[in-house]
Design a protein around this nucleic acid. Structure first.
Lengths: 341, 341
DNA sequence: ATGAAAGCGCTAACAC
DNA sequence: GTGTTAGCGCTTTCAT
């Protein structure tokens, strides 16, 4: 069943059928009605490829994420999906598993499929690799911190500031032996987190201990392992800033297994505020990221690019969203710390 | 940059270039090498649409899930993705949000895009609608229980049995006032859960109380609300089988807020055993579903269909995987119950 | 308002 | 082993 069959049945030319499909306003109401009814009754579906071959548009965007088992990513994806759905776009989800090689492979695939745009989330790509995508005429937006500031629109939150907030909160609480746990997220992001953390320490004239900065896999298991490493230190910290909620969950689990009470013996702060973070016990104090919003804003930026493809790119937009410390129970309060000692 | 440019540069015909792309074994090593080097240096990417127009294959499958914020679904998707990736397929993720209308819209979109196959997860579609997809020549596999037994391969676990196991475990523990909470998952599934639950009760000559069967949205919030409803009953249950882990989390959260201790005052059993279920406090006793495996098996079945498209369909495969009660802390043990009374 | 026809870029059957 | 060429199904320009 193709456009010619429809044309024949309707006693018109293929051009006319094509018109009712693409520019219905340019066809006489009567003919249009007739063709439409035939299309309906035959359940004719225009060939996607033939259409694409002419139009060179797919109505598809690529969504590239580090790990789809991490709710943090999925909350961002949900935001992006919500706007894509509104635009009648559909998305190819690429789960690159924190693997630059896999990410490149997926990207090639997306380019090959001529997606209309790509939303990169916490990408491991180099600036050069990203530029190569753009060179193909495919708009790219990045969600999360990166160094490509001038090449690509970026939606991020200031993780240096977030780390500073978390560390300061520990400090206010009276705790000074603070460890930081970070994943294999993009290097910039880790560097910034560490900078914020060290900045807070320095302000209180507390010396930075490199053993208190540990990198692990960005998963619950990674958090668990990291916590063990901390606890095996000759002088273990009594507070841990886990730079993702998943890491924090792992830390808390390790503490439970080690009979170390949170927050009394070790205080924990996470990063993200995913849905689960107030269901663990104690409820997780965490630096909230506006995840869904990051996805929404990222997707909007991407569609701006897609829709205005030919306009000269005035300036690359770079949107920074605010994070906020969400105080719950996993980090002690000043008063309670007082009680303890 | 198209195939003709390459052909000209190489001084060969387009057919030869096409051959090195599709049947490299049929072209002389020398010509092949030359063409390949030109392809590499010009970074030529064959046009996806033109290719699809001829081959009528997309290397894409559709993955239709109720809710991507539910880790239960994502663990299944991950399983499916793992096999898709191996086959060099990429997937279109459709988040239908438990909405039959949205699901239909997405399905139409997938058909239009001529995906090579569709993996439906806990679909809300009617058998007629599914048959319509198959009629288009697109293979379909369903993950989760459904009534379409003879039309489509199904990968499921026996939720009647699972509910029976959970309820029986409660009973063994000495608890008899047992409520069941279920989501807006496909009706068959809910019916079976209720059947298993009632069967266990009847075996112990415990009368079924309809107020103890509550339906809510299949989310943490739904679980929370459901628990409140239970607790507001004149004679509230002292055990709740939440038919998904997310529901169970919500139930436990409500109990915490209501100062009702789990499992001492109300025992809870979940269903799924998602990664988070042993991180909540108390750790969740749950009926384990082999989620990742369900995804893997489902995808394998789908690819069998895709690859053997033209073979007569001998018989529709119907695979049932085993669930297993995972005993943790959210449901009391017989001995401990003894202590309590 | 409608039709004829030229492509879009590629694959594969057929010829040599 | 390689070239010629006829489509694949659609959109769009150019006529009328």
């Amino acid at each position: 069943m193709n456009i010619r069959h429809i044309a024949e049945k309707a006693g018109v030319s293929v051009a006319t059928v094509s018109r009712v499909l693409n520019h219905p306003e340019h066809v006489a109401p009567a003919t249009k009605a007739k063709i439409e009814s035939i299309i309906a009754e035959t359940e004719y579906i225009p060939n996607w490829f033939a259409r694409g071959l002419n139009l060179n548009k797919t109505g598809t965007i690529g969504l590239v994420i580090p790990n789809m088992l991490n709710p943090e990513n999925m909350e961002i994806v949900k935001g992006a999906e919500d706007v894509a759905q509104q635009k009648d776009y559909i998305s190819l989800l690429c789960n690159v598993e924190n693997d630059a090689k896999k990410e490149n492979k997926y990207i090639d695939n997306l380019i090959k499929r001529r997606v209309d745009g790509i939303l990169l989330i916490s990408s491991l790509l180099s600036e050069k690799e990203v530029m190569a995508i753009i060179a193909q005429g495919i708009p790219v937006v990045h969600v999360g911190e990166t160094t490509w500031n001038d090449s690509v629109p970026i939606v991020s939150i200031d993780s240096k500031d977030a780390a500073y907030k978390a560390t300061t909160h520990f400090l206010e609480t009276g705790v000074t032996k603070i460890g930081i746990l970070y994943g294999e997220t993009p290097e910039v992001e880790n560097n910034r987190k560490i900078k914020g953390y060290e900045k807070a320490l320095k302000e209180e004239k507390i010396s930075v201990i490199k053993e208190y900065e540990i990198q692990v896999e960005n998963t619950i298991e990674g958090g668990y392992l990291g916590a063990r490493k901390f606890m095996n230190l000759p002088n273990p910290p009594n507070a841990i800033f886990a730079t993702s909620d998943l890491l924090a969950f792992g830390v808390m689990d390790a503490m439970k297994d080690g009979n170390i009470s949170v927050p009394e013996q070790v205080a924990v702060i996470g990063f993200g505020n995913i849905r689960m973070s107030n269901l663990v016990e104690p409820k997780l104090t965490t630096v909230e990221k506006p995840l869904h919003k990051m996805g929404v804003v990222g997707a909007r930026l991407l569609f701006d690019l897609i829709e205005g493809k030919n306009k000269p790119i005035e300036e690359v937009k770079n949107i920074q969203l605010q994070s906020k410390l969400k105080i719950r129970k996993s980090c002690g309060h000043k008063e309670r710390i007082g009680e303890m000692f």
